[in-house]
């Protein structure tokens, strides 16, 4: 089962504003690119044309793994606003 299909099962209320901000300057010098594989929701991608790192924040499971794994401190990460984000029905 594809992770996108799994994420579609979750109850989520999306904010318009991203709770994750990426400092592209730092990413350019990053060779590890851990964010591209550690995210349990596979939300990070490298834009093929610009080489920029993007995150599809609306599927975020709010685990914080990307924040912990990023070796260069490129992420400004906070929890989504009170009314937003994933709301687990089972947990």
């Amino acid at each position: 089962m594809d992770v996108k299909e799994k994420l579609a099962l979750n109850r989520v209320r999306n904010d318009e504003e991203s709770h994750i901000n990426i400092d592209q300057e730092k990413c350019r010098e990053c060779s590890l690119r851990a964010c591209l594989f550690v995210c349990p929701a596979a939300l990070y991608e490298k834009n093929a044309e610009t080489g920029e790192i993007t995150v599809e924040f609306s599927g975020c499971l709010e685990c914080g793994t990307c924040l912990i794994a990023c070796p260069r401190g490129a992420l400004k990460w906070r929890y989504p606003g009170g009314r937003f984000g994933v709301q687990y029905r089972y947990g």
Binding site: M1, A34, L36, F37, V38, C39, P40, A42, I68, P71
Partner: peptide, 19 residues
């Protein structure tokens, strides 16, 4: 464990590990 995992070069995606 995030430690060893995040240091892998081109590591396996977590959703793939799950599958």
């Amino acid at each position: 464990g995030i430690g060893g995992y995040a240091e892998l070069e081109n590591g396996p995606k977590l959703p793939d590990l799950f599958e």
